[in-house]
Design a protein around this nucleic acid. Structure first.
Lengths: 203, 203
DNA sequence: CCGTAAGCACACAGAGCGGTGTACATAACA
DNA sequence: TGTTATGTACACCGCTCTGTGTGCTTACGG
C-alpha cells in the first residue's frame, strides 16, 4: 500500500492527484462557474501543483469534459432505478431534487463554453438525450400512450425548472412537478393502476 | 439636423455612437457570449473608439445591463398584445418564436455573469417575472381557473424550451407548445369559448 | 542502492482582458 | 473667430488567464 498523507514535502499521496483535481472541479466549477475558475485556484484547492495537473490533463478543455463526465447525479441512475416506487412515482421523483444543486451543470457548461463542438458541450448533449430516453423508458413502463413524447416533455420540464431556478433565484421545481403530474395523468390511460403502491405494471 | 456619415477622420456621425455600441452588443453578445466578447472587438465592430465607449458607459457591466434592457423582443409586447387573436391563441403564439434566437439572452446573461447581484442579472430576473405576469394576465383574460399558476407554468415552458434548444442544438419549442396546449385546455373551463375558431388544429 | 516515476515549487511566457492617459481633429454654436 | 463638446488614434497599465520550463524531492521496486 502506498503511503497516504505524507509530510509537507514531496508526494502528498500515493494515489489521488487525478481524483483530487476532479473533486475540486466538482466544487469550484459548480460554485463559481467554469470560466471564472482559473487553473491556479483549482490546483491550489486540489493541493496539486499546476505542473502535475497538466500532466494528467492536456488542457482545461479536457478537464472540463472529464468533470462533466463524472456525474450521473441522482436523477439518472439514482431515482429512476428505485424499485420501491411505481413507474409513475419514479417519474415524479425526478422533480424532487435536493436544494444542493444551484444549476444543472450541463446547461451551465453549454452556455459558458458557448461552443457546440466543445467536447463538454457534446457530452452535455448526449447526457440530455440519455435522460430523455430513460424517462421515456420509465414512461413506457408506466403505460404511457406515447412514451417518447412524454419523456421529451418531462426532460424539458426539468431543464426549464433548472434554468428558471437559476435566473429567478427561486426554486421552480414544484411548478415543474405540478405540470409533470398533469402530463402524466393525461398521457397514461386510467386503466394503468399506478397509484397503488409497489405494484409492477404488466405492460 | 446634424451631419451624418462624415469623412474618414473626426466624428463619424453626429448621433449614434451609443446606438452603434448597443447595436454591436446585440450582435456580438448573442453570437459569442458576453464573456468572450472583449471591449476592443466590440468597439471595432461598432466603429467607435474605446475612449468614446467608456465615456458613454462607466464600464462593461453597465453596458451589459443596458444591452439586456434593450430587448423586449416579440414575446412580451409583440405577441401578447395582438388583438386579432383570442387570449388562448395569444398564449400559444408565445411559443411560435422565429428560429433567429439562439438562446434567450436573459438566461445566458444570468449564467455567464454568475452573480445574482449583477445589474444585468437583476434585470433578467425582473424581466422573467414580468413575462410570467403578462402571461398570467392573458391567462386570466382567457378565463383560466388559476391564472397566476398557468402564467408561471407557461413561463417555465418557454425557459425550458430555450435552455433545451441551446443544449441539444435542436428546436424544442414545438414540444413546449404541445405541453402548453394541454395545460391551457386543462386550466380553462370548457365554457370559455376560445375554441370557436377552430381553423388551426394543433397536434 | 540505485533508477525511475511521480510530484512539488516557482518563475515565466504570451495573450487577452478591462480600463485610462494623452494629444489631436472636427462640428456646432457663440 | 474662438470655445466647447464630442470623438479619434494609439499607446499603455495592471491584472488574470492558460500553459511551460526547470530543477529539486520523495517513494517504491528491482
Amino acid at each position: 500500500m502506498t503511503e497516504v498523507e505524507k509530510g509537507p514535502k514531496g508526494r502528498r499521496r500515493g494515489r489521488g492527484a487525478r481524483e483530487r483535481i476532479l473533486s475540486a472541479s466538482q466544487q469550484l466549477f459548480r460554485e463559481q462557474g467554469i470560466n471564472r475558475t482559473g487553473m491556479d485556484q483549482l490546483c491550489a484547492a486540489a493541493q496539486v501543483s499546476k505542473r502535475t495537473a497538466y500532466q494528467h490533463f492536456t488542457g482545461k478543455d479536457e478537464l472540463v469534459a472529464e468533470y462533466l463526465r463524472r456525474f450521473d447525479p441522482s436523477v439518472l441512475s439514482g431515482v429512476l432505478d428505485r424499485t420501491d416506487l411505481t413507474p409513475r412515482e419514479r417519474l415524479l421523483a425526478a422533480f424532487d431534487i435536493p436544494p444542493t444543486t444551484p444549476l444543472c451543470p450541463y446547461i451551465a457548461a453549454a452556455v459558458e463554453l458557448h461552443d457546440p463542438q466543445h467536447p463538454a458541450s457534446q457530452y452535455a448533449r448526449d447526457y440530455k438525450k440519455a435522460v430523455a430516453a430513460r424517462l421515456a423508458d420509465t414512461a413506457r413502463e408506466a403505460g404511457a400512450a406515447d412514451p417518447e413524447q412524454l419523456g421529451e416533455q418531462l426532460a424539458l420540464l426539468i431543464d426549464g425548472a433548472a434554468a428558471r431556478t437559476r435566473v429567478l433565484n427561486a426554486d421552480a421545481f414544484p411548478t415543474a412537478a405540478a405540470i409533470a403530474a398533469a402530463l402524466i395523468d393525461n398521457a397514461i390511460p386510467a386503466t394503468a393502476s399506478d397509484d397503488r403502491r409497489r405494484e409492477e405494471v404488466p405492460s
